[in-house]
Structures are given as structure tokens and as C-alpha cells.
Design a protein around this nucleic acid. Sequence first.
DNA 1: GACTATTAGTTAGCACGCTAAGCAGTTAGA
DNA 2: TCTAACTGCTTAGCGTGCTAACTAATAGTC
Lengths: 146, 146
Amino acid sequence: MLRYFGLLRRTMEPFFAGHGISVSQWGMLRALLRADHDGHTGLRLMDLGERLLVRPPSVSGVVRRLTAMGLVKTVPSGDDHRARLVSLTAKGRQLVERVGEAHVQRVREIYAALDEHELAGLSSSLSKLCHRMEEISRENCEKEQA
Amino acid sequence: MLRYFGLLRRTMEPFFAGHGISVSQWGMLRALLRADHDGHTGLRLMDLGERLLVRPPSVSGVVRRLTAMGLVKTVPSGDDHRARLVSLTAKGRQLVERVGEAHVQRVREIYAALDEHELAGLSSSLSKLCHRMEEISRENCEKEQA
DNA sequence: GACTATTAGTTAGCACGCTAAGCAGTTAGA
DNA sequence: TCTAACTGCTTAGCGTGCTAACTAATAGTC
């Protein structure tokens, strides 16, 4: 079971590396593209962290590297002087759209191993497991507080 | 889909942290316990790497930390003067057996979210996907060589 | 026997995740 | 109003993964 875990990483990483980015960087770029499509002018680091299920320091690091690559820019938020809004640069948008197409194709290629019924079952099972794990995490949090 | 990925980590890590070890360390201890049951006197770092799907430098690091914790010991291999054989100390064996019981229970707790049929489907689907990903990795390797 | 190739492992250096601790800026309560 | 609590983010430091480059031992080849 855990084998799937490692294999997925080892399949994805070289793919994104071919485009010059890492899996985490891809995740962030995609989140920013979506936010843009939803009409947001930018996302705060906290928002990014929530969407990517990642803690603030990790977000900072990825943003810093993407900024250095010129794929992303940050501007101070007008509302809250603590916050910074992250958004795609033209270069970043171009890259994420290009990689996105290849990625969709790659995902299709992998999931071609399953028929529709299996795919539906997998999706349902994973979502149930996610749900269960969230419950357990919550229980443990409460225990710790007690 | 990828959500499952992160959630699994975030559920497992605190669990093992409660026993003072990390997920990788657990993986290595378990591999060593299994090897012991199979009658091996110890595993070379390369063997461990293959079983855990991890590259040599990462193995070295985990072994170093486990050694520092007194859970594992290494002796030079008689056959090959380059190699080192890793095995559990008494303390390590005791810990892995204790954690193992709790771990089995925890896994059961999570997979209780699925019925038998779903579980079988999940297992089959994941193994098909693993197979597919291995194929793709192999194809890419061959492409690179060309 | 000597010369190369392969193999086991290490070290250096990076990306990415985390926690803990600290700094601003913001909000809320006395 | 003024202090206290919270929030957004950064820094420091660690564990784990990787690649690349290196050492040392083994194996193969002439």
C-alpha cells in the first residue's frame, strides 16, 4: 500500500523536473492559476498553506524560490499590512498552462490502467479514508488538549 | 486525490512521534525485524534501500540516527569489506514490536471506514496503478538513454 | 599481475516538510 | 485608551528525500 506512495512521487518528480519545477512548486502554481480564474487578485500565504495542506514556513520557502525564478510575484496587501498577496507573473502563467496540458495527459495515461468502475471505486474509497483520517486527527487533537 | 497523500502523512507522523521515531525510521526498523524473522543476521545498506525504495545517502542518514538512538547496530560484513550489516539491538527489537502492535490497531481503525469489497477494490486498483507507473518510469528511462 | 569497471558507502549541497520562537500589525477587552 | 491576545509571516534548526562527486573494495579483462 505504501508502495504507491513512493512510486507516485518517483513518477511525478522527473516529469515536473523536465519542466524545471518541483511537485510542490507545481501545486502552488496551479493553486494560483485557479485563484486567478476565480477572480482573486492574489492569495495570501496563509490561504496557499490551507489549500496545499502545508504550514507557513514551507509556503514561504516555495514562494521565495518561485519568485527567484520569476514565475510569481508578491505585493503587500492593502487591507492588512502584515499580509502579502502572491500571484502569477506572465511567465508563470504561461508555464503553468503549458505544463498543465502535459500533466493532464500524463494523469490520463496512468489512470488508463483502470476502467470507469474501478476509478469510481478508488475515488470513493480514498475520500472515505481521508474522512476517517481527518476524524482521527481531530480526536487526537482533542486528547492532547485534555 | 493527492489530498490522501498529505493526510496520510499527517496522521502517521504524530502517531510514530508519540513513540519517539519518524515514519522512515519505523520503516527501517520494520524491515530489519522482518529480515531477522527470515533468518538474516543483518541487512546491507543497499538491501535496505531497495526494500524501502530509498537511495543510499538517505539510508545512511536514517541508520546513523537510529544508531545514535541505540535502536540499531552495524557490523562490517565478513564477505565484502565495503559492506556493513545493519541489525536491531535488543532495545530496537523491543520498541519495534511494541510499536508494531499499536500500529496494526491504528491501521485497522483507519481501514474500518471501508467494507471488505471496497478494500479489495482499493488494493487491486492501487496495485494496477503501481504497475502502470513502473511501466511509465521504465519507458522514460529508456527514452533518456536514447 | 596490472588496469579498468562495477559496486558499497559516504559527503556535500539542495528542496521540502515540520516545530518552536520571534516580530510586526491587528483586534478586542478592561 | 491602552494593554493583551491573536494573526500573518519569517527565521532557525532538524529529519528525509534527492543528485553528483568521491573513496574504497571487489570483479573482470588483457
